[in-house]
Design a binder for these strands. Sequence first.
DNA 1: AGACTATATGCACATTTTCGCATATAGTGT
DNA 2: ACACTATATGCGAAAATGTGCATATAGTCT
Lengths: 116, 116
Amino acid sequence: MRELVKVFRALSDETRIRILKVLLERECCVCEIMQALDISQSRASRNLGILEGAGFVKSRREGLWMVYAIDEQAMNSYVAALIEVLRGSLVNEEIILWDRERLSRAVRVGPRAIRK
Amino acid sequence: MRELVKVFRALSDETRIRILKVLLERECCVCEIMQALDISQSRASRNLGILEGAGFVKSRREGLWMVYAIDEQAMNSYVAALIEVLRGSLVNEEIILWDRERLSRAVRVGPRAIRK
DNA sequence: AGACTATATGCACATTTTCGCATATAGTGT
DNA sequence: ACACTATATGCGAAAATGTGCATATAGTCT
């Protein structure tokens, strides 16, 4: 039960839904998420952590970067079904399209270089 | 997007998940929900309202009682898929079994008569 | 009408959540 | 070792959330 609540809670936030929609396009490091959603570094990192804790996302280190990706084999629980729901949702939502657009221009370079 | 967040937020609370699991058994008036979950009247009413606002539940008046039920024809959006996820979840969760047990003994009589 | 019932809701309060800022941590390369 | 980079995290403030209490609302019945 606690687990199920955690899973839904992870999805009950616009930032995290946007992150998942971006990760459904392709895996990203934190700085790419920052650029795609145009949000701060701590906000990106924290919300990625919440998604990981809920089982939607896995991470691996790649040099300096932490690469986050949808955890496809996390088919254990309800997570897989919810990812499918998300995959079919918000297909024409404006902000999602913008995020995707910015993602396509994002580069794997850190927050220091982005200078906000 | 706002709608989707509202839907997930409605599920991100243990009380509301318990209510939905009870309503998946059968439709209930507010006082039956109170008895099944052993919670206060305002808590039952408010959370039912949230579930209704998110589209999971519909209500009809039946004399003094408001009867709430899973909104089966709200199959328009993600709601249907999420209800299916819930239907298959928590099948052996202790608290859910308790709720069901208390539901089976619940009577359609108001909070006044229940005397807590 | 008035008495009674079931449900909704305003208010206050405690708890939780989200986020920015600054700093800590971890890895790279000299 | 040191300088530099990307990410994680402690802390504090603002906002949102969940709940109980009391009361309002809506319906029934005599």
